[in-house]
């Protein structure tokens, strides 16, 4: 996903000299294509994310479209007030990019796990929050935020994600994407956990069920219209995120459903159960341990429905 992001950004930066990329001293190897091909639009701000973020705001106010890049919580929580006051409040054209959403950097420990970012960024007015679920969504999201005038947050996985969509027609910020038709149960997914959702879907289908699946590359603004339509039609909506259960994607869906007067569906939120990971492990291991992997998703859905 990060390589897709960089490739897409390189292509855009070649066309648009106002696109700038600033890193907080990370991206060895990953950002190489960018600094090789568009060296005059690349800056290393050093290990200083607060300054990096406000420098980006200052540059944006001078007409640049500035991407800030780091991993885990460094480009977000470390400099949250800079995002709020300096980027969002000024509607500055800053695109905050995090590599390593969720348990991507599982073995590096809790400090490197971005598991509350969606909730925290979603709470800020004038910040678009995106979490693409596969390489196609990553490419489309990168293009979309570059065009969008204002502050955006892009939460990426790391590498090795699959292409799940063949192609996405008419990708738009704020619009969910239907992956599988279905009935009774609809699964909503955001971010890299899409691969677990896909695995769960295949298991459920083999067992004779037919859940619908939608991905939400945009967490904010949430696709309210689609949620309302599905909630009127289906019995159960299941949200899946590699993120704390408090405040994130599931909460955004819950907010929409809670205010509906004519919904049929009930809601099941699957996420990390309001805890930090205290065990070391790779992403796959931690997903299993914290019950957000494919088989946990299957188990939780079957407990609720069948």
């Amino acid at each position: 996903m990060r390589d897709t992001f960089v490739k897409t950004l390189v292509d855009m930066a070649k066309e648009d000299k106002n696109i700038e990329l600033i890193t907080g001293d990370l991206g060895f190897g990953v950002l190489k294509p960018f600094w090789e091909q568009v060296p005059n639009q690349f800056t290393n701000a050093g290990i200083a994310e607060q300054n990096m973020t406000t420098v980006a705001a200052g540059m944006a106010l001078e007409g640049k479209t500035v991407f800030t890049y780091s991993i885990g919580n460094f480009p977000t929580l470390r400099c949250l007030e800079q995002i709020r006051n300096d980027c969002a409040y000024h509607k500055a054209n800053v695109k905050i990019v995090c590599v390593g959403g969720g348990f991507v950097y599982g073995s590096l420990g809790m400090s490197h796990q971005a598991t509350e970012d969606l909730a925290i960024l979603r709470a800020l007015p004038d910040v678009v929050v995106m979490a693409p679920g596969d390489l196609v969504e990553a490419e489309e999201a990168t293009k979309a935020i570059a065009k969008y005038q204002g502050t955006c947050y892009l939460r990426l996985g790391r590498g090795g994600e699959k292409r799940i969509h063949n192609c996405i027609e008419d990708f738009q910020i704020g619009k969910a994407i239907k992956v599988h038709e279905g009935a009774e149960v609809a699964i909503f997914s955001t971010g890299g956990i899409f691969e677990e959702v896909q695995e769960a879907y295949e298991v459920l289908v083999k067992q004779g069920y037919q859940p619908a699946v939608y991905t939400f590359p945009t967490v904010k603004p949430i696709d309210k219209e689609l949620i309302e339509n599905v909630a009127r039609e289906f019995q159960l909506i299941v949200t899946c995120e590699e993120h704390n259960i408090v405040g994130g994607f599931g909460s955004a869906v819950a907010e929409v459903m809670a205010e509906m007067i004519d919904k049929k569906a009930v809601l099941l939120r699957i996420g990390i159960n309001d805890e930090y990971s205290i065990r070391v492990g790779n992403q796959k291991y931690l997903r299993e341990r914290y019950n957000v992997d494919g088989s946990s998703i299957v188990k939780k859905i079957k407990e609720r429905v069948f």
Partner: peptide, 24 residues
Amino acid sequence: DFSTGSLGHGLSAGVGMAYALKKD
């Protein structure tokens, strides 16, 4: 040009402006 109030932000913003101006 720039809102302030939380201390320690303004110099970075000025740095970003100066950097963009110098680049251009």
